[in-house]
Design a protein around this nucleic acid. Sequence first.
DNA 1: ACCTGAACACCGTTCAAGT
DNA 2: ACCTGAACACCGTTCAAGT
Lengths: 194, 194
Amino acid sequence: MVERQRADARRNYERILAVAEEEVAAKGADASLEQIARVAGVGSATVRRHFPTRRALLEAVSQQRIEALCARARELADRKSNNRAGEGRKALLEWLGEVVAYCVTARGLAAALSYDEGHDPLGGNSCAAALIEAGEPLLRSAAREGAVAPRTTVEDLITLAVGLALATEHHPEPTARAEALLALTVAGISPERG
Amino acid sequence: MVERQRADARRNYERILAVAEEEVAAKGADASLEQIARVAGVGSATVRRHFPTRRALLEAVSQQRIEALCARARELADRKSNNRAGEGRKALLEWLGEVVAYCVTARGLAAALSYDEGHDPLGGNSCAAALIEAGEPLLRSAAREGAVAPRTTVEDLITLAVGLALATEHHPEPTARAEALLALTVAGISPERG
DNA sequence: ACCTGAACACCGTTCAAGT
DNA sequence: ACCTGAACACCGTTCAAGT
């Protein structure tokens, strides 16, 4: 769908995306689209053509990080070759920690990963979909060890990560706060004692 | 601080608050302050005098629900008179469930309870402070039973509740989703097996 | 096919002028 | 002491006119 694009359109797309990355990094998910257009030297209507919704822009801006997290998931899934007990759990939790850290650090990412009520038949957004797919093997390994409840989904984990990022956004030390809360969530506020 | 107020100022305050409740219920935390002023029949500058920040308005709008949750906490804390084992845990979790349900249902409440980076010496906002104080006895009872980790704070629980509400805001069935995720959080994603 | 520029309706902030 | 009205700078959306 990027094929056969006119050179100037392509150029504009790249420029807008580059500016958007800076603006979102500076101002967060609410960065001004108008400002982005201004700095990129295009009309706001042009921004809108390339990115019809704010969310589309945020997803594009976040794409590299999401790909990095997907790659990391695959890496961790492969690495557990030695099959020691508890290795699957460890890998899953390490990945989840990185997802949370990214969501807290990379402004706009949590918003891009938030559930989108768009009428997408699968009920998810394409952006989170890749991450969910990449995390699946990690979750399954951990579940096979009995380390996570059988009905847990990767989407649950992502939603929790997004929630932690959003809730700690205005704290003085968001990363530390989010990590502490993740630890609490992993261990359970009050797990059944068997 | 509400004493010796001129009658018209008092009337305006009440009107603005009443309108704000409707608008926030309809549009959420991002409701238009201008629109609220219009419906209330006052200038936007008047709204600003009574509620200097959006947050102040959201806190005022949420006050009744917060008081209800505080009352509920006291009620649950008193009720566990029969001191049966696990009673403290049960009370805490029931309350936490209600906090989450309120945050999901009552638009603007999650925003009002979010951490405020204002230079408030205690590091919290006055709105959440009441809720934290009210929840303290419940948490302590549960902790005394060994049902929650000793270093857990009520603020942790509130922040988690806010996070769940924010993360599920755009889901088709926010309440069900938030409840499911709360259950997962209470049980733990992957508790240590002792 | 793609872009621009302008018009539109909206927003929150600020302040001088009123009573 | 409190309010109003207006001015300001900003926002996102839309569309007719350009190349």
